[in-house]
């Protein structure tokens, strides 16, 4: 899914931006805290996204007129 891919990479990019801004030391305490909260949420989301996708190897097979997914065994 294109959206999900973008969201992961954007999350990563956003996280880097947040950290850089925080490290610049130019944020107010309020901004610091909202940045921290957002960053922590992003870390959690990214970590979750990395692990929640199950490894799945499938191939498309023709069934009648349409293609369907079927498990793929590399040795076959």
């Amino acid at each position: 899914m294109v959206n999900k891919k973008e969201s992961f990479e954007e999350a990563l990019k956003r996280l880097e931006t947040l950290v850089e801004q925080m490290e610049s030391g130019e944020l107010s305490l309020e901004a610091m805290i909202t940045h921290f909260e957002e960053g922590s949420a992003l870390v959690e989301r990214c970590s979750k996204q990395l692990t929640e996708v199950e490894q799945k190897i499938e191939k498309l097979v023709k069934r009648g007129d349409s293609l369907e997914r079927a498990p793929f065994d590399a040795e076959a």
Binding site: V53, Q55, I57, E58, K59, F72, A74
Partner: peptide
């Protein structure tokens, strides 16, 4: 080719979905 691809892909990135169009 397909064996090498699947092997290296899943070794580097275990949480990955692969869809093969044969």
């Amino acid at each position: 080719a397909v064996r090498d691809l699947v092997e290296v892909l899943t070794r580097r990135f275990p949480h990955l979905e692969i869809l093969l169009a044969p």
